[in-house]
Nucleic acid binder design. Sequence first.
DNA 1: ATGAATGAAAT
DNA 2: ATTTCATTCAT
Length: 867
Amino acid sequence: MKGSNRNKDHSAEGEGTGKRPKRKCLQWHPLLAKKLLDFSEEEEEEEEEEDIDKVQLLGADGLEHDVDETEDDESSEQRARRPMNAFLLFCKRHRSLVRQEHPRLDNRGATKILADWWAVLDPKEKQKYTDMAKEYKDAFMKANPGYKWCPATNKPVKSPAPTVNTRKKLWAFPSDSGKDLPSPKKAKTEEMPQLNFGMADPTQMGGLSMLLLAGEHALTAQEISSNTSHPEAPAPAKQCEESALFQFAEISSNTSQLGSPEPVKRCGKSALFQLAEMCLASEGVKVEDSKVTKAKESEGKSMEESEKGKVEREIKEEKSEEEKLQKTELEKPDEKIVKDCPSVTNFDEITVDQMKEGKKEDGEEIKKEELREDENCSHFIDPSSSISSKLITSDSPSRKDPICHSHEAVIIEDTLGLSKPEKLKKKKKKNKMDRHGNEKSTPKKTCKKRQSSESDIESVIYTIEAVAKGDWGIEKLGETPRKKVRTSSSVKGSILDTKSPKKKIKSKDKKMSKEKLSNPTKETKPLDFISITANKEVPGEIPECVRAEPLTPTEEVLPQSLPGQVKTEESDCNRKIEICGSRKSERSCKGALYKTLVSEGMLTSLRANVDRGKRSSGKGSSSDHEGCWHEENWSFTQCGTSGSKKLKRPKPKEEFVLGLAKLEEEFEKKFNSLPQYSPVTFDRKSVSVPRKKKKTGNVSSEQTKTSKAILLEDKTTTEPLRKTKDAPSVSSTPEPTTTQEPLVGSQKRKARKTKITHLVRTADGRVSPAGGTLDDKPKEQLQGSLPKASATDIDCNEECSQNIEAEEIRSITPDMPAVSAFFSLAALAEVAAMENVHRSQRAAPLAHDGQPKEMPQAPVLISCADQ
DNA sequence: ATGAATGAAAT
DNA sequence: ATTTCATTCAT
């Protein structure tokens, strides 16, 4: 509650307000932030007392600041941006592809293409986007309940209105219903007055967070505050099921409320570092292994006992710290800063010290450290926090709400800390950069694609675990490190820190697996969730970026299903392990760890900017310079603000930022998880579509077919042909459109929709049907794997396209197909089948069942019908 | 700053 | 029914 507010500086920041160029702001982050702020405000008023009582820490300051902050935020915040709709999401996701294909095309043109794609996109796929959009929207709304799409008449946008509106509750619970009901309504709020903290599952959270968690645990968790402070804490068990976004949002909100996010984050960071250090130390010192293990165990088990004392101590420390802080705010901040961005050496020293001083107690030590930091950062500390940590550590079987909450909260924060460099100052960046520089060699960047990160994370986790256990080499023996990981939970009490995370993961996995089993087909719905998890679990790609199969649609890529990938993974793991095991391992390990982390961060940004990245290549330097951390897209406008402010006060903003960042991260992740389709698919479809019409409506039949082929990861291969096509299309396209109608805006749109315009345009685009043919061919070639392709296309591109069209349009009418056509189709089908088989063999057993047969047939029938 | 697209919300 | 605005970025 109040903690968050503490900065008044913020207000000064009016700049935030000013700024917001519009473009780069945060999308929904701002909202969230706002929410948070609002929330905090409200809460303060209402709960203030309680909180104070409990905490007793800083009282007044917080409030005042809060107010200021709030205002600032509000003002600065400006208006949150609308959540993107499905189409926009789609555009965002695919624009880069389009651009890739048609470099010459300007955005408008690209947009048109995207529109076409969208038009032909299978309903199923579309649905995914729609769902995502909805989720997004819901989350958004939750974040800002009163949000109005249109800012009322004026552009007063900024301050006033939002304040009033927003006031609501915010973080009420989204719960499942959230999806359905966007309405921010209040009922919920009242029902579940509280926020539920905890629902976040580690699984759902970013892998990074997991990593952190693991790290922390390993080290000795120290967590701090986080949630317990809330009296009502709630608990919504079911929440686990909620979407990650919501959870994040909630969590963040919670965090904000507590106001201690920052500290946590810091802790996380430090923990991470420590972990890394440990790795080093263990190696270097050698002795460490056993010690560490012991320490952990002792910690885990004995923690509870010692907890009380610890807590007390902590509290005392806190107080003293606090006092100090108050007295010497100036100084502290500096110190803090230092800590925050400790030079490498410092860091090392610290770690070393810790190691030396208390292997057993390192946990405590760490805690202290963190506490101090926290204090520095924020005055707020929660006694309960210690408890929470305890719980976590102990890893009670119940693992229910409270624990979950704490975990989640912690995790989140950690993640935030890592991921969010934000604008924190160059210092941080610098440090990071340095670090990166040291280890930098990682080529990871290259691997831009999505899954890699997860896999990396996993590996990292693994590594961490190993480190924690001190097993370095031992695990190596086990061929199935992976497996072990999954199953490991059963072992010991899972008391070990490391374990807990694992356990969770595992549980999730189980769940997943179950689900999978139940639905081999894989439902889209749970997809987000599943996909994410899956990714994590199965790291198809490793840092190496070797992706034999570029196509790993989220759906298809069931973890278990792909032996090949798994294998790779294993090998990878082994390799890693080996490395670790080796004497030099420390270095490599550490390097790996950092690298991974770094890369993770980088990846994130990269992902976010994939498109721009290319373009910015010119700018590349700048991007590098910035650090991997923030992505322009998601970066907050506030950056400027914070920067302007002083280093010292980053807190509140940071918090928000962090929280936001978290959310954003999550969002990003989700967004990234959205399927991306290869242009080829669309082209083909589009070809067909235009003729007949797109909206007719039922394309369902064909979906399957397409869907299969569709997903595209990245492959750029297709380009060359496309380019050729582009030129013509481009030239042609614009003209007609323009010429034809003076109509503007909605009218045009309408017209288009109605059809005429569209047709015309298409025709143009199509103009290239001739060209289209060519295009098709190449495309198909490119596709290669696609079943349909090859032979048939060559024979009759148009026909094929027509057929397709026909399919789409009316799968119903069964005509007798021309023999020739039939054959060709049949051949195709066969080929396809073969393909499938092949694929299945190679890829996954799962795929096996349904697809091969059905797929081919369907097309055939359909096609027949056409002709 | 404009616009190209779609969609959701508001008017 | 029409406006507004969300994303993207060359123009």
